[in-house]
Amino acid sequence: MSVITIERKVLEKNDVIAQQNRNKFKLKNRFVMNFVSSPGSGKTSVVEKTIELSKGNFRVGVIEGDVQTNLDAERVSKFNVPVVQIVTNGGCHLEANLVRDAYKNLENEEFEVLIIENVGNLVCPSNYDLGEDIKVVILSTTEGEDKPLKYPAMFRNAAVLIINKIDLIPYLDCNIEVMKKNALAINPQLEIFEVSCKTGEGLNDWINWIKKKIEKL
């Protein structure tokens, strides 16, 4: 019997491609955000609102990830921005190679901000670097204030937390202060935005934050 030392990361192949993606994004000076959340939190609505409010501020390109259908890409394409759909056919997360292939169709388009909308899932996407600058985790008030504690890896790895559907707070038992406290216990550096894609509340702060990020690039 002999023992062979390996010492390799299981996801090293993904990490290598993610780094190549990152280099490609840098070449074009693009700010890249990976949107992650559970299904139904309003990821696509935040994408739509970000595009809508970006007019005159910055241009957006979108990679849509879904398990099935290209419904999200159809929603986004109404805004006349470059968009590519990835259908994972059952896969529960996006991987760097899928983003690499999708980006080939976007590379020569004109935009400063790339949004990658991941598959709705608060577990698996946290393991896979796609080459993004930051992860943005979206959590809606209907999901309850305990989610950051239940899915710590995702909240620990994100730079931004968008709390969506704040217009529903009067009808829910959700205590948004507890939600924020829980999120900050997992990740004290989190930048938090409280928004409603329905009423538009809070979204200007989010857009201004992106503008500042791009200015620094």
Binding site: M1, I4, T5, E7, R8, K9, V10, N127, A153, R156
Partner: peptide, 17 residues
């Protein structure tokens, strides 16, 4: 700072000679 907890690594394999 997080020192450990995110590992997902293969350290070694054992094979018959």
């Amino acid at each position: 700072q997080l020192l450990a907890g995110r590992e997902l690594e293969i350290t070694e394999i054992e094979v018959e000679d």
